[in-house]
Design a protein around this nucleic acid. Structure first.
Lengths: 227, 227
DNA sequence: TGCCGGCAGATTGCATGCAATCTTTGCCCA
DNA sequence: TGGGCAAAGATTGCATGCAATCTGCCGGCA
């Protein structure tokens, strides 16, 4: 099956490492030894691995220290908050054009995601719920039709994904978040840009208030491990 | 002086290549052969070069095609416009917090940049004027105190720097731009965030109207070369 | 003349070897 | 016993070699 493997080892390991970091399989701050991870990933050699590290470093997912190699980037609380503030701002920028430009087809697609998120909520499937939630927000941003905005939004989401996920472990807020999403969808369908912007902003504000404590606890745990 | 060169070749060539691309020494679309550029840059070997390419690709400055190597990313007009729209949006996001948080020291620093930009205008030094202009906008964004916002803004600026520069070749608008900057500085000093946001938005809108034709001509020229 | 197949040169993708640097261990001495 | 130093082992940084792929050219054929 995998006979012809010339030309995409770097690509493959970059994607796998990115997934592992974003999903939290590798803990923040954890050192990644070239040889060690290489043997763990199909016995890949060091060259494509090193290239993957450089890419992920440019994305902010790993940090490279000279002569000391790569480690999973450990963000500070301040950095996570700055990033979330930016993400909210970006969604705000997307709101008006998204309302103006979104197609019926994309509206239906988001609607379906919303339905599936509701199902995940009822089944109490955390991961599924979380990913659908993220997907909905990404789709709204995409609807604005600005490729660069979409790319930046996706990249910054990935960078802090692990931390936000930690902040969603408790589902106390899920029902309220669902209701807010319902409103958001309504504003989008009504093509009311300014309302959509306010709803999105409030949605994140509410969400972050709850998540924050959990994320802080996560930070404390990481600090313990790291010491 | 440069005896001990172990451990930063990748870093060095990445920086040099980035400068060359951003400044336009390498034309958009131009293929970059590993061996060729390696010999041109101190006879560096291919390994650090390839790592540099991966980094610059992640930044969007070069494009890597499988088995065909790296080339300077050639942006479409739409991509440049999307990026500028995003940059304006980001400045808009920065306006309020910048007004709220900027220190007298940073205000003075921006003021000095503004003075120097005026001097460059009178001396008709295009490059100097352009760079000071960019620096002022970056400082305003930085003043908002959101590191992530600053980083994203800087990265996207770099990506389209070459195109914007092309749009500034004519200095018909320089005097008006200077006057607008004066107003912008005033709003910042008065800590009037909403006014600052509007001024910034109008400033870019005006500027882009003028630049656009020149950038389009540049595109036409590039297309001719590329064909 | 125009098109297609295939061969040769060039180029990229990856593995590996060597040198420089870092880390750890263990010894010596106070 | 504790601190400091040195040497060995481990790890990264880079150069280079080889295999896979691409590009361009040339001859053959319709």
């Amino acid at each position: 099956m995998s006979e012809n493997m010339h030309g995409n080892r770097t690509q493959v390991v970059t994607t796998r490492l990115r997934q592992m970091i974003v999903a939290g399989d590798l803990a923040p701050g954890q050192r990644i030894s070239e040889r060690e991870i290489g043997e763990h990933l199909d016995g890949i050699s060091r060259t494509p691995l090193r290239e993957a590290f450089k890419i992920l470093a440019a994305e902010g997912l790993v940090t490279i220290s000279p002569n000391r190699g790569a480690s999973v980037t450990a963000l500070s609380m301040a950095e996570v908050e700055d990033t979330i503030e930016l993400l909210v701002g970006l969604e705000g920028l997307a709101a008006e054009p998204a309302c103006a430009r979104i197609s019926e087809q994309d509206l239906a697609a988001i609607d379906e995601l919303h339905q599936r998120m509701g199902a995940a909520y009822r089944a109490e499937q955390l991961m599924e719920y979380f990913e659908l939630n993220q997907a909905i927000h990404q789709h709204i941003v995409d609807a604005a039709g600005n490729r660069v905005l979409s790319r930046v939004y996706a990249a910054e989401c990935a960078r802090i994904r692990r931390y936000r996920y930690a902040g969603n472990r408790r589902h106390e807020r899920w029902d309220r978040a669902l209701a807010e999403h319902q409103q958001i969808l309504g504003a989008l369908k009504a093509r009311n840009g300014s309302l959509l912007r306010e709803l999105l902003c409030a949605h994140h504000h509410n969400g972050w208030q709850i998540s924050r404590a959990l994320v802080e606890r996560e930070f404390a745990a990481d600090a313990t491990v790291a010491s």
